[in-house]
């Protein structure tokens, strides 16, 4: 396996702020790798460290085995799709896409021919002569993509590229981006704060929190086996049972998490490995295919349960204020570190 990008003990400090704090990371060639985290978690700084817009305070960054720390952005074999697209407003769409080739010294006719081919690939063949300001958000996004890809980078960096688009368009672009990545076979490094986006597109996801990485794993592992309370809570929603609460339930000081959809009301004759938890129903939220039930298991101890609306167990009428005993299956309880 060839490594596209490798971080070894990389830190980026701004005075007292540790934006990125001693991160280790290995991204394989051809991987769709997402960096997920809330704002200020260090994911964008990490991307900018790869692009070269930031230089590490310490540590080593290798791009295809070559030390990149200290190299300016123009000498790196990576290209970026910016969050605000960063299209040059004074140039036509075609010249925007051809910009990288112009800098390389490719002759005008040739670079325009190749830029047109790129625009065709992102289905914007007719729009070459327009100014970026005359395009919609989704179209600008595609121009930014074509411009970044024309230099045939081995790594494409995407900084929340779909953040400004509406939901329908965003879902459509997610599908297209994933298809494009498969077709090109190059490494995509994708920064997002949207866990749904990260889960649906990525081969692997790194979850960032406060300048550090909490967990790096495939989406299904991340979801079913979150390593920390932060991951359990940030990726999807989860009921986190802290050490004190866990001790009162299981007798062990070991925090654990249970996904809301794994919790069920106790059935008659229920047995097996698990915990019975007496609760009181606070609220029911109807969400279409499923309903969410807010349950109070004690003072300040509120958990949520999600039941499909066609589930027989849910058909029994549950009214707020009612007492419900729920079942936490042992195989749904995931031990958390920290």
């Amino acid at each position: 396996m060839t490594l596209a990008v490798r971080f070894q003990q990389v830190s980026r400090h701004y005075d007292a702020v540790r934006a990125v704090d001693q991160i280790d990371l290995a991204i394989a060639e051809g991987e769709f790798f997402s960096m997920l985290g809330p704002s200020g978690s260090g994911k964008t700084t990490s991307l900018r460290l790869i692009a070269g817009f930031e230089q590490p305070s310490s540590g080593s960054i290798q791009i295809f085995g070559r030390e990149a720390a200290g190299l300016p952005p123009n000498l790196r074999d990576v290209n970026t799709v910016f969050q605000d697209y960063a299209l040059f407003p004074h140039m036509s769409v075609l010249d925007n896409v051809a910009y990288g080739l112009m800098i390389k010294g490719v002759a005008r006719a040739e670079r325009h021919r190749r830029a047109e081919a790129m625009l065709d690939m992102v289905k914007l063949g007719q729009y070459g002569s327009r100014r970026p300001s005359a395009l919609s958000g989704g179209q600008r996004q595609r121009v930014a993509l074509a411009r970044a890809l024309i230099l045939q980078p081995r790594v494409l960096l995407l900084d929340e590229p779909l953040g400004a688009l509406d939901l329908k368009l965003r879902e459509q672009m997610q599908t297209e981006l994933k298809a494009l990545q498969r077709k090109l076979g190059i490494t995509f490094i994708y920064v997002t704060h949207d866990q749904g986006e990260a889960l649906s597109m990525s081969d692997r996801v790194a979850v960032f929190n406060k300048g550090r990485i909490e967990q790096i794993a495939a989406p299904q592992v991340l979801y079913t086996q979150p390593a920390t309370a932060f991951v359990a809570d940030f990726v999807g929603t989860s009921n986190v049972f802290d050490a004190a609460w866990a001790a009162s339930l299981t007798g062990q000081q070991q925090a654990f998490a249970v996904r809301p959809e794994r919790i069920r009301p106790v059935q008659e004759g229920q047995d097996g490995d698990g915990i019975r938890l007496p609760t009181r129903l606070l609220d029911v939220q109807y969400l279409g295919a499923v309903s969410r039930y807010e349950l109070e298991a004690g003072p300040e101890r509120i958990i949520s349960m999600v039941l499909p609306n066609d589930d027989a167990a849910a058909r029994q009428v549950l009214t707020p204020g009612q007492a419900i005993t729920v079942w936490l299956p042992a195989q749904a309880m995931h031990a958390l570190a920290g």
Binding site: F82, L87, F88
Partner: peptide, 27 residues
């Protein structure tokens, strides 16, 4: 002028002078 324009120019291989010449000066 968004600072990301300068970054985009560098990202696409331009040095500082080229970025000034092709991105900043026209604007």
């Amino acid at each position: 002028i968004s600072t990301s324009l300068l970054e985009a120019s560098q990202d696409l291989g331009a040095n500082m002078w080229q970025s000034f010449r092709y991105v900043i000066l026209p604007q």
